[in-house]
Design a protein around this nucleic acid. Structure first.
Lengths: 225, 225
DNA sequence: GGTGGACTTGACCAGTTGGTCAAGTCCCGT
DNA sequence: ACGGGACTTGACCAACTGGTCAAGTCCACC
C-alpha cells in the first residue's frame, strides 16, 4: 500500500521536523569540526543522546545527509546574495554587493565554508558542489557581461573574472576571518578593492573625487608583457 | 644499542629507497583519486601487491605518510617557483613569473593540488598546510612590498594582495585546468591579467605601447564607493 | 480507552579499519 | 659459507564502520 521504502517522503509531525533539523545542524557542526569521514553516525547520535535508529528514521544514509547539508547551504548562500543585490540596478553596484554578501555569509557560516572546501576535494561530493558553484559563477559573470557591454569595465572574459572574484573571496575570507579575526565588513571592503583593481590597478584608497585621474602609476610593468 | 623504535631514521638500501618512493607515489595517486580517508593502508599495499608489513617498515603511520607527501609537495612547489624567478630582478616581473610558475606547477601536479585542497579542510592537516601557505604568501608579499616602495604599484597591504593572487591562481587553475582542459600557459596569462588589473582595472588586451594612457574606463563606479 | 502511525531504542551484523608481529627470505660483507 | 641486517609476509587484533530491525513507547484522534 504505497509505503516508501526509504526515509524520503516520510510524514513528519512537528516534533519530527524538529528532530530532523536538530540532527542536520548537529551533524553540520561535527562534520565541520572533525571532518566528514572521521565523524561517524555513532558520533552524531551519541552526541545527541539518541539511539542509532533515529538517524536512519530521518535520513537514508550519512552520505545523503551530507548532500542535503551542502544543498541547503548553497541555496542559503545564493538566496542571501540575491536578496543583498535585489534593490540595486547598477551592474557594478550589484557585483560589489554580491561580493560583500559572499564574504558576510561566509563569515556568518564558517562551518559551511569548511564543508564546501572538503566537498570540493572528494569526487563523491564534487559533482554536487560544481552545480552550485557554476550557478554562483554564472550569476556573477552575467553582471560582469552587462557592465562590459555598457562600457563600464574593460572587455574581458566575464566568466574568468567571476572565477577570479570567487577565488579572492574564498581565500581572503579564509585567511582573515576563519584563520584570523578580521572584521567581516572590512574584509569585504578589502576583497572588493582587490577584485576591482588587482595589484597594479588604481588603489581606491587613492581615488579621491577629483584627483583620481592624477594618480598615475608608473606603467613600467607594461614592458614586461 | 640506540635502535630507533619507529621507522624514522631507518637505514635504507637502494632497493629500500626505491620501495619507499614507490609507496609514496602510489599513495599520492590513490589519495588524490579516492580521497585520503577512503583509501586504506590495505588498498595501498594491495595495489602494490605487497604485504602490509612493507608499509609499516617504511612509514610510521598512514597519517605520517600523508604529511610527508604534503611536505614534499610544498617544498617542490616552492623550489619550482624560486627557480622560475631566480634570474629576474624586477619585482613585478618576479611576481608575474611566480604566478605563472604556480599555475604551471599545479597544472603539472593536479593530484597534489587536490591533496592540498583536502588537507586544508581537515584540522589534522590544516596546521601543516598553513606553514607552507604562509611561506608562499609572505614570499609574494615581500615582492609586492618592494614594488610598492619603488612606487611601481599603488600602496596597499602586500599580504592581502598576496592572498588575492593565491586565491585567483587556485580558483582559475581548478576551473580551467583541473575541471576543464585549458592550456596551462594561457591560463597563466589569464591569472596574471586578472591579478594585475582586477575586473575594473585596465585590460592588458587594450594596453598598446603608446595609447595605453588614452584608454580611460568610465570611472562611474567610483561613485558607488 | 483503544487503534495506528510517528517515533525511539539498542543489540546486532558483516565488513573494514589502522596497526602489530613472529616468522621468514634475501643478499651483502666477511 | 655463514652471520646479520634489510626487507617481506600475512595472520591476527581490538576497535570501529555504516546500516538493519524486532521490539517497544508515545500520543493524537476516533
Amino acid at each position: 500500500m504505497a509505503r516508501q521504502s526509504k526515509s524520503k517522503g516520510r510524514t513528519l509531525t512537528s516534533k519530527g521536523r524538529q528532530r530532523r533539523s536538530q540532527i542536520l545542524s548537529y551533524a553540520t557542526v561535527r562534520f565541520a569540526s572533525d571532518g566528514y569521514h572521521p565523524t561517524s553516525v555513532a558520533d552524531i547520535v551519541g552526541g545527541l543522546g539518541v539511539g542509532k535508529g533515529v538517524f536512519y528514521w530521518y535520513f537514508e544514509s550519512k552520505e545523503q545527509l551530507f548532500l542535503e547539508i551542502l544543498r541547503d547551504a548553497q541555496k542559503d548562500l545564493r538566496r542571501y546574495q540575491r536578496d543583498s543585490i535585489a534593490d540595486l540596478t547598477d551592474p557594478i553596484e550589484r557585483i560589489e554587493a554580491g561580493i560583500r554578501a559572499g564574504v558576510i555569509w561566509m563569515a556568518d557560516n564558517p562551518e559551511l565554508r569548511r564543508l564546501f572546501e572538503f566537498a570540493r576535494s572528494e569526487d563523491t561530493f564534487a559533482r554536487s558542489m560544481k552545480v552550485g558553484e557554476a550557478t554562483l559563477i554564472s550569476d556573477a559573470a552575467e553582471h560582469l557581461r552587462i557592465a562590459i557591454d555598457a562600457g563600464r569595465i574593460p572587455c574581458r572574459d566575464p566568466e574568468a573574472l567571476a572565477h577570479g572574484i570567487f577565488g579572492v573571496t574564498n581565500q581572503l575570507t579564509m585567511a582573515y576571518i576563519d584563520h584570523g579575526d578580521g572584521d567581516p565588513a572590512e574584509v569585504a571592503d578589502l576583497v572588493v578593492s582587490i577584485c576591482r583593481n588587482g595589484f597594479a590597478g588604481l588603489s581606491d584608497q587613492l581615488t579621491g573625487d577629483s584627483n583620481s585621474a592624477d594618480v598615475i602609476v608608473n606603467p613600467a610593468w607594461s614592458r614586461t608583457v
